[in-house]
Structure formats: structure tokens, C-alpha cells
Design a protein around this nucleic acid. Structure first.
Length: 275
DNA sequence: TTGTGTTTTATTGCCTCC
DNA sequence: GGAGGCAATAAAACACAA
């Protein structure tokens, strides 16, 4: 640990001799005379107390001294002993003062850099937050749009089922056309590909409304990227996700037939299950 | 002039390196 | 163990509004 000795106090005293207007070695000589006079007077008890009070005073460095120190700091912000001694001599300051000045200057630089980094991080954070808020708004708008479409679809379904019921009541027994249509639906073993523009996920549908099948059908959800990469490594393993769909809700004769009907738009009931 | 906030100089205590 | 660096802090010097 560094302790300050009597010589350090003298150093401090010497540096005190410099006022703001004093400069360089010339001033140092003036100080030396003053210092000698003060030393002489220190022998007197009255001055001793005054001197001890005086040593507590701080003096700011002159503008020229600060300029020279700044210039040196720009070159290298660490101080080797040689440079310290040289600066001390040139500026008429104690080596300890030079060291302290560099130390404090490094601390100021660090604070400044921290403030700058904080500013950069903050602006980056603000930009990111703005981006997030915009996305959130977009998300909300899409949700509203989706619920509107859902309600529109369910309304249309309701209307079409009412029409179908009316037709059935009108034409009993079942007409040839409807028989054929029903048969077609029974035989369907179609594969449907529905691609979402937003995501590259493809939905493969392999369905059958045949009564010989079990009560479940499967909807295969696969991501082409996943599939592609898996083809390389695990050719035999299907990495797609299978979603079980209850036949009752999806592939009763009405809805599955509507799905493939040219006249009517698909109900997409399966799409909204679980929402 | 004075109260108050900021800047600068200096000290202290701890840590690391040689 | 001494030298030097750093963080935290004290205290003087300075700036400035009221």
C-alpha cells in the first residue's frame, strides 16, 4: 500500500506554490524562493500551523500543464516511469501529481466511454421496441381479420346446411345425382396440399370417408425444410407431425363433400378447430 | 452574496504483477 | 514486498442561477 511520507507533503507543498497563472520552470524558480522563505519561517511556531493549513489547499493545474498532459495522454494513456519523470521535469509538477492526473484522466475516459456505450445500447433498444410494437399492432389486426373471416364462414355454413335440408325434404327418395356425389365422396382418397404463404409449412391431407376406416383420419403437417434435411439423414423416418382429426367433426358426408365441391367454397372447418 | 451542482485534484484501500 | 492500477471517496475549486 502506498503511504505518503514527509517528502510527499513537501511535494504537495511545492505544487501548491503554483497558481493558475504560473507557468513552467520559471515559475518553479519563483516557487523555490518562496518555498525557502516558507521553510525558514516554519521554524517559527506561528507559521507552522498556518503551513499545515496551507498544505490542505489544492491548486488546479495551469492551462498549459493540462494541455501538455492531454497531449501526452492522447499518445498513450498509460504512464511509464521515464515519461513520468520527463513530464514532471517539463511541467514542474511532482511525479505523483502526474501519476494522479493520468489516473483521474483514465477514469474520466472510462466514464465517457460507458456513457457512449449506454447511448448506443439505448438507441438500439428503442429501435427494437418500436419494431416490436409495430409487429404487435400488425398481429392484433390479423387476429381481428381472422375472427371476422371465421364468423363469416360459420354463417355461410349455416345457410348452406339449411338449403341442403330443404332439398332433402323435397326429393325423397334420394336422387341419382346425390347418390353419385355421395359415392364419389366415399371413394375419395385424396391428397390435398394447402400451402400457407406466411409459413412454408405444407399441409398434406390424406382422407377417406369410407365407413370401413377407423373413426380417425390423419392430417399431416410438414415443414419442407425439416423434411428436406431429414431426407438426408433419416430417410425412413417421417419427421412430419400428424394431427388426429375426428371423423365426426371433419369428414361427415356433408362437409367432406363440400370440401371438394366446385360450387361451394371449402368450409375449412378443420382449419379452425382448436381456435 | 450565497446555495448548489459539477469538475478537478488528491487520498485510501484493495488487487495484481513481477 | 514494492510498484502501479483501479474504484470509491473526500475536498477544494469553480460555475451559475436566484
Amino acid at each position: 500500500m502506498k503511504r505518503f511520507t514527509a517528502s510527499d507533503s513537501l511535494d504537495a507543498f511545492i505544487s501548491m506554490c503554483q497558481s493558475k497563472d504560473e507557468k513552467g520552470l520559471k515559475n518553479n524558480q519563483v516557487c523555490s524562493r518562496e518555498f525557502q522563505a516558507m521553510i525558514d519561517s516554519l521554524e517559527e511556531e506561528d507559521y507552522r500551523e498556518e503551513a499545515s493549513q496551507a498544505t490542505e489547499k489544492k491548486r488546479r493545474l495551469s492551462l498549459n500543464q493540462v494541455k501538455a498532459l492531454e497531449k501526452n495522454f492522447e499518445v498513450e494513456n498509460k504512464l511509464e516511469p521515464d515519461r513520468k519523470a520527463k513530464l514532471s521535469e517539463e511541467l514542474g509538477l511532482q511525479p505523483r501529481q502526474i501519476a494522479v492526473w493520468f489516473q483521474n484522466r483514465r477514469a474520466r475516459l472510462k466514464t465517457k466511454e460507458l456513457e457512449r456505450d449506454y447511448g448506443l445500447l439505448k438507441s438500439s433498444y428503442d429501435a427494437l421496441k418500436l419494431d416490436y410494437n409495430n409487429l404487435e399492432q400488425e398481429h392484433e389486426a390479423l387476429k381481428v381479420q381472422l375472427s371476422e373471416l371465421k364468423s363469416k364462414l360459420s354463417q355461410e355454413n349455416e345457410e348452406s346446411s339449411q338449403v341442403a335440408t330443404a332439398e332433402v325434404e323435397e326429393e325423397t327418395p334420394v336422387s341419382e345425382q346425390s347418390k353419385n356425389q355421395s359415392g364419389l365422396c366415399d371413394d375419395v382418397n385424396a391428397q390435398l396440399l394447402i400451402s400457407s404463404p406466411a409459413s412454408s409449412t405444407t399441409l398434406h391431407f390424406t382422407g377417406s370417408s369410407s365407413s370401413s376406416l377407423t373413426s380417425m383420419n390423419w392430417v399431416q403437417l410438414s415443414d419442407p425444410r425439416t423434411t428436406l434435411s431429414n431426407h438426408h439423414h433419416h430417410h425412413h423416418h417421417q419427421q412430419s407431425h400428424f394431427v388426429k382429426l375426428e371423423e365426426q367433426s371433419l369428414f361427415n358426408s356433408d362437409s367432406s363433400c363440400n370440401f371438394f365441391s366446385v360450387d361451394q367454397p371449402p368450409t375449412l372447418q378443420w382449419y379452425f378447430t382448436g381456435q
